[in-house]
Design a protein around this nucleic acid. Structure first.
Lengths: 316, 316
DNA sequence: CATCTTATGCTCAGTTTGAGCAAAAGAGCG
DNA sequence: CGCTCTTTTGCTCAAACTGAGCATAAGATG
């Protein structure tokens, strides 16, 4: 009987005003997420195991950690992509984790680099409006895909809901649905790779469909994007990505970066104010370009428990 | 090196006006969830594997299925509880799934029984007000626990937030936090069992702390309770638990049963109306006890995507 | 036919939300 | 210095939503 191996993969996220970043490890050909084999003898819990080798492999420790999802589909794991670790005949189960950090140290002693997550999902960034590539490339390809295959109506529906086609709204949390749709439709590079097609011959089809990752790592990353986007709305996890003190504009920029969506400034402030999540420090950011802004800090003692435990996200 | 086994456990939920029910299998001593070993050779995906043996083991097929969480803590798995299946020296990882169904067939050819989930979590049912047992038994025990242990303040905080002590609100989604707290505080039967204590000698401490389950199944069930309670608020999954047509009161009763919380009738209707999730059929339930109620059905074609994709839950 | 019970309609004040106008406070520059 | 630019911060206003009730409708029961 085939043995089972459990892999732990971590999506370590940091962010600044311009983008959320994810820690990527370099491999031959493509990047991946920091990942390691779960050690059934050594690791008492997944989370401890994860913290151990994230520290070893990337040089630092995420503050907040949460489990994302466990992937076990055959065909998706593609262990060949990382021959050093694979027991080639084992069935690989991978447990994905999300970790958040506020520091983004460039410690080049480790072979890990920070990459904007929009490099992997260019269609997810709507801060300057809906990316033209969606209607120019993705939508036509998905329409074609749903025409041809079986269950045509269902495919069309999924495509419309996921990408907000035909006047449906764009819902930022659905990042995973979108990636899976692209994968199924053969528009993600990994889909070709996993069926063993010769990628060089079809390279053109993936232009603009985002940078691929090894194994099923981009799928795990998509899960993380969707989860984090949802979570910041009802839990104050966004502050895990912020420095100790920050201006309200900086906070808004980071929220916008995570959501991939611009927000209404005054209403964002009003809601934040009412939530009681932050308090002013009395000091000001001597600024470049406008009126100085007060520095705020997260009130770690928020017991309030009222409605908004997350930040409000009033669309611009 | 220790080998790894992956177990799949399913929380299969049905509901009627009086309670949500969970499908339980009988074992020597305690009940458990339907569960089986994941077959790395046969099962292409977890979900397919799960559907296979749920059908084999309980005689029917859940409609809606979603993954809950993957538990891998050593010490929690307690494989001895089910000696028929265990490879005694393997490390057991268990992947929990939630399945919803509207039929609750009592097929006694299979050794599965439907139990109200409040039998396992009596403190979770607030439909007739906060259960007295919380303040009478749980709260004092938790206060005592937080006094003694290390990190006293943190413990006290967790207890207050989880159980809504000292005027904090009761938040129904936190079912898992509550169960884990009771486990850590030694108030769940399983906690004693897992450290190998002689349970018969301490039986009294668990009076009213709910019926235990084998292995970590009650923990998985608590995860399911919390997840479902959250989910019905933003996805129309509640209708997976309803028959084809139903009155609004029946729907409300089921929502209340799931939440463990009474709702304001008129406002529930108003919100449901606005959501567009249901439509009247024109036929009426000839009733026992009052004016006949119109039968409604779920509009499976809701593309609306506006705000409320779930049912609103205006507290009574 | 009066009474009981549940369904259903409607009101009203308080709150929240979406959208915007306007003033305040530095920086840079002729 | 006074003007312009930029960003922060304060404030308004109508529309929509919510929480809490009152009132009526429509069968069943005896």
């Amino acid at each position: 009987m085939t043995s089972i191996a459990v892999g732990l993969s971590a999506v370590i996220v940091a962010a600044d005003a311009s983008a959320p970043y994810v820690l990527a490890t370099r491999h031959s050909g493509a990047v991946g997420l920091p990942h390691g084999r779960f050690d059934p003898d050594g690791d008492r819990t997944f989370e401890l195991g994860l913290r151990n080798w994230v520290r070893a492999q990337t040089g630092f420790e995420p503050g907040y950690v949460e489990q994302l999802y466990t992937f076990g589909d055959r065909g998706r794991e593609h262990p060949q992509a990382d021959p050093d670790e694979a027991a080639p005949d084992a069935r690989l189960i991978s447990v994905g984790y999300l970790g958040l950090t506020s520091e983004r140290t460039e410690d080049s002693a480790f072979d890990a680099v920070w990459r904007s997550w929009y490099q992997f999902f260019p269609w997810e960034d709507h801060r300057d409006g809906r990316p033209p590539m969606i209607d120019a490339h993705i939508a036509p390809a998905l329409y074609k895909w749903s025409e041809h295959g079986p269950a045509s109506a269902a495919r069309l529906d999924r495509a419309r809901m996921a990408f907000g086609l035909d006047d449906r709204p764009w819902i930022e949390e659905r990042a995973l649905e979108r990636y899976e749709l692209l994968y199924e439709a053969g528009l993600a590079f990994e889909a070709m790779r996993d069926i063993g097609a010769d990628s060089s011959s079809t390279d053109g089809a993936f232009a603009g469909s985002g940078e691929p990752m090894i194994s099923d790592h981009r799928r795990i990353l998509a899960t993380a994007v969707g989860r984090l986007r949802g979570k910041i709305k009802y839990r104050p996890v966004i502050f895990e990505l912020m420095p100790e003190t920050f201006t309200l504009s900086q906070l808004q920029k980071v929220v916008e970066a995570v959501l991939g969506q611009a927000l209404h400034k005054q209403n964002f402030r009003r809601a934040l104010d009412k939530s009681g999540l932050v308090e002013g420090t009395g000091t000001f950011e001597t600024y470049t370009g406008g009126r100085p802004a007060e520095l705020y800090r997260f009130r770690r003692d928020v017991q309030r428990e009222r409605a908004a435990l997350g930040v409000a996200t009033p669309k611009a």
